[in-house]
Amino acid sequence: METLEQCPLCDNRHFEHHSIVRDHFLSGEEFTLVECPSCHLIFTNPRPKQTEIGVYYKSTDYISHSNKIKNITSIVYKLVRTYTLRKKYQLIQSLLGNRPEIHHLDYGSGTGHFIDYTTKKGWISKGYEPDKNALQHNNKTTRKLILHTLDSIQLNTYDVITLFHVLEHVHNLNKTIELLINQLKPNGVLLLALPNHKSFDAQHYNTHWAGYDVPRHLYHFNRKSVNSLAEQYGFKIDSVAPMPFDSYYVSMLSEKYLGNSMTLIRGLFSGLKSNKKARANGEYSSLIYILRK
């Protein structure tokens, strides 16, 4: 374990206690969350070292790194993924307009479904994924699109770089952001999809909220902390898009962590209520932040 003496985003050395959250998914261990009053980032502290974090991913139930269907939650996840691939593509296409070629990097590409989809749509897509288990589930075509080292990522190459539920996992937060910004073209777009601890489902489930997912999630963002991140690197939040299906999936998992029965029905009801409230205040369970210079 390592203890951070300064905020991983803004380097502030003063933190405030936020909560203690159990790893309901795998280990059963408890982890402390602290909040930086300067940039509003909440982060897990202490946390496993980068060389030790791998054991917390070693489960066949980690759906984003597997294609196997084992239970109702994974069935719902995969059905929704088919729909969201199209919505992600349409969103980004609308942001970039009619460019003759779209060069795209999906950082943390997982099982490669998104780059497989965008490549078939005519984009020049590449993925970067360090997790060997996730790479095993890529098809032969997608494997050719994967960059296996960060040195393979070229400067000023990409029109758009996407991180769908990835940034909260990386140990070197600022180093990663700097790396990716340097790979963007001058008019490029950076998309960050992140869980939102200001959502209704997060408030409702509190420390049982599956979106915390400690210790795999090292950081816990909201609009203020993402805005601090953007300003630190000379970017601005151009717009924010909802990920309304996440509330259902996260709520089902949260119900499971509470030990409740009928997790599907309870989760659907809670997810519906969360989205209803989010339509009024914008605080969906997960948000996509579109960052531009």
Rank of each mutant, 00 (worst) to 15 (best):
I124D: 00
T60Q: 12
L145T: 13
I177D: 02
A210T: 08
Q203F: 14
L4H: 10
G54N: 03
T119W: 06
S19L: 07
L96K: 03
H104I: 08
V250E: 11
S261K: 13
T176Q: 03
L184I: 03
A210M: 05
T176P: 00
I69L: 09
L218W: 04
T207K: 13
L26C: 10
K293L: 03
E129S: 13
P37L: 09
D213P: 14
E52Y: 13
E168T: 14
K49I: 09
R86H: 05
N139P: 03
K140H: 15
D151T: 14
S261H: 08
G112A: 05
Y289A: 01
F43A: 06
Q232A: 12
A210H: 06
P242C: 07
V170T: 11
K273E: 02
T60K: 13
R266G: 01
H137L: 11
K132M: 04
P8Y: 01
Q136R: 14
H14M: 00
M252K: 02
I20H: 10
A202Q: 12
P48K: 03
F200T: 07
S125L: 02
A202H: 03
I153G: 06
M1E: 01
H208C: 04
R223W: 07
R81I: 14
N98G: 06
R143K: 06
Y83F: 13
N206C: 13
K276G: 01
